[in-house]
Every structure is written in structure tokens, then in C-alpha cells.
Nucleic acid binder design. Structure first.
Lengths: 172, 172
DNA sequence: CGGCGGTATGTGAAGTCTCATATACTCACG
DNA sequence: CGTGAGTATATGAGACTTCACATACCGCCG
């Protein structure tokens, strides 16, 4: 049920339409959640049915009429309860990482090529994440920087033709 | 369709039962994927129906008969194709992070308490991740270490009563 | 012998997610 | 005037995910 709560959290800042919410989620991966519009619309319906948000239609300068949702007192209560729940680390769910990990059984040239591809993704994402002063943004930046450094270290180890394990020794 | 491919990847190392696969996934979060048994069993059925794995029943020293799956040539081809697909960064999907981010609008004592709770999770996980010499494990370790450092920096900033933004200045 | 804990397989319901597809309104450009 | 781009809402299929529950086999301990 996280998506509904995340939407409630966004709405608690300012009323918004499904479209607005999607834009805000996609713009800032540091928020920790994203979803398709086709998930967001039914989720807003459920929130409406449950009385956690209210709806006001208003015509838009462009396109069809906007459906603007805002949090009700009941929604605010629900949000507060959700925020107070105990934390847990997320279940890993990253197809790219899974493939990268399986690749370790492949040949070095292949691994190098794929690692560089991944490094490119990280570099692009780091640039996108360059702005913003929230704690969550700072977290995202340092994580991307760390992963970039990791990719470089693994590349270097591949080039050197060794495994970069704790067993690796300085040559005497 | 990632779960099926991840299972194929695990099976390509050694034949295994659904139970085995679940254990291997849960033991190593650095693999980038985990799933419930109730997902794994139907996924194995689909792989079987598709001819990507074969099945051999064998009795187990304990418990009901094991159903051991192994990759077929067709499965190996499918795995290879999947591994060759282009990479992409995963869509953010972390309820804890989402709550942590929303918390930034709360009061400092509250934020400090929650941040410390999160820090505790990270520290535990880092300990669990301490072993292993694969690149994926090294990645996980440096990421956890970085996040731990981030949590400490944010805590310190909260204590100091300022925002730790780029606007923060050395005192004159 | 009876129950407990670990191994091992499953089902079902409800919600989530991805991907494809459809509709409709407005503005700008050619 | 037509067409494409951007805004905005929506539906459906199929797979994925979570959680609760059910079943069964084995050895061990009291």
C-alpha cells in the first residue's frame, strides 16, 4: 500500500492532479518512489473512496479538465500513522544489478564493456542529481558517487588482470 | 519477467529446488533480487512449461520430495539473451526512504530519532554483508558504508541545528 | 507418544506494476 | 487546415508482489 501513502505525502504539501504527482515523482528519484500514471490514477480513486482525499475539478489552460486532489483530515491522520511505522531495508529488486552480478562469470573484455556501460548510466544520473539541498538528495548524490568509484575500481582491477579480493597481495 | 531470468541465472550454476533458490536469494542481497516462495514456485512452473528448465524429483533426507530444476540448452540461450540486454537504473521503490524523505518536514528531535533508527538498520546490514569477495558484494559494502556516513553527517547537522546545505558557511 | 522446529511444496485474495492502447483538448508551426 | 507536441485522464491484460494460510515429512526432545 505504499504508493497511496506516498501520494498522500506529496499531496500534503500542495493539492495536485495525478499528472502533477507523476511529474514530481519522476523528477526526483531521491524521493524513493516512482510509479506509472496507470497506477497513480486507480490509487487516487481508492484514496477518494476511502475519504483520504477530496476532489475538485477545474478546467486547465491546456488539455482536458484537471482533477485536483487534496488531503482530508482523515488522510492526514493516515499519513502520520504511516510515517510512524518502523523502518526496514527494502527487498532488493534491481534487474540491472542482478545481471551485472551474473556477469562476473564471464570473460574480462565482456565484463569491462558492460561495467563501462553501467558507469555511463551512473555518471548521467549523477549529473541529473546535482541540484537540491534536501537530505534525501544529498544521500542520492553520495551513493551515486560511491557507486561510480566502485565501478572505476572494478574496471581498474579488470585491467590489471587480477580479482581485487582480500587475497590480492602487493607484489613483494 | 526478471524473476524468471534471475532464477535461470542461479540454476545455471547448479541445479536447485525452489527452496534452495529462495535461500540463496535471501542470503545475498548483493545479488540484486529477492522474492517470496509463493512467487518462485509459479515462476519455476512457467519456466518448465516453456522448456527453459527440466525437472527431476528426488526424495529428500528431510521433508517432502524435492523438485530439482536444471537449465536446458534453450534456457541457457534465453539467459544469455537476457544478460545481453541494455542496462538501465532501477525505478526507485523504497518505502523507508520515502518516509525518511517526507520526515524532513518534521521537528528535529523526531527526525533525529528516526534517522538513528535507520542508521541502526544500516549498521546491522553492513555486518551481515561483511563477507564475500564478489564485485557485487564489494559494491554493497561500500554503498552501506556511504549511507552510514551520510546518516551520521545528517545527525551531526541536526545536532548543530543547521541545515548542512551548500549555503552553510564556515563561521568567520 | 506428542509436539516442536526445520525442510519443502503449494493455494488464494487483493493489491501492485508494466506495457500497450485510447481519448480529448490546446497551441504552434508549416 | 492538418499535423505534431504537450497536457491530462483512463482502461485492460498479464505478470508480479505480499500476506495469510494449508499441507506434509522428518528427527529430536521431553
Amino acid at each position: 500500500m505504499s504508493l497511496s501513502h506516498v501520494l498522500l505525502g506529496l499531496l500534503s504539501t500542495a493539492p495536485a492532479s495525478g499528472w502533477d504527482l507523476k511529474r514530481r515523482l519522476s523528477e526526483d528519484p531521491a524521493r524513493g518512489w516512482d510509479a506509472d500514471l496507470s497506477q497513480i490514477y486507480p490509487a487516487l480513486r481508492r484514496l477518494l473512496r476511502g475519504g483520504f482525499v477530496s476532489l475538485k475539478r477545474r478546467r486547465s489552460p491546456q488539455g482536458p479538465p484537471r482533477r485536483e486532489y487534496r488531503v482530508t483530515p482523515s488522510g492526514r491522520r493516515e499519513l502520520k500513522d504511516w510515517l510512524a511505522e518502523p523502518y526496514a531495508l527494502p527487498r532488493p529488486h534491481d534487474a540491472t544489478l542482478a545481471r551485472l552480478a551474473l556477469l562476473e562469470r564471464g570473460l574480462p573484455p565482456d565484463r569491462m564493456r558492460r561495467l563501462q556501460e553501467y558507469r555511463g548510466l551512473l555518471a548521467d544520473e549523477l549529473q541529473r542529481a546535482a541540484t537540491g539541498t534536501t537530505a534525501a538528495r544529498r544521500r542520492r548524490r553520495v551513493l551515486l558517487e560511491t557507486e561510480l568509484a566502485w565501478a572505476d575500481a572494478e574496471s581498474a582491477a579488470l585491467l590489471a588482470g587480477r580479482s581485487l579480493g582480500p587475497a590480492a597481495k602487493e607484489r613483494p
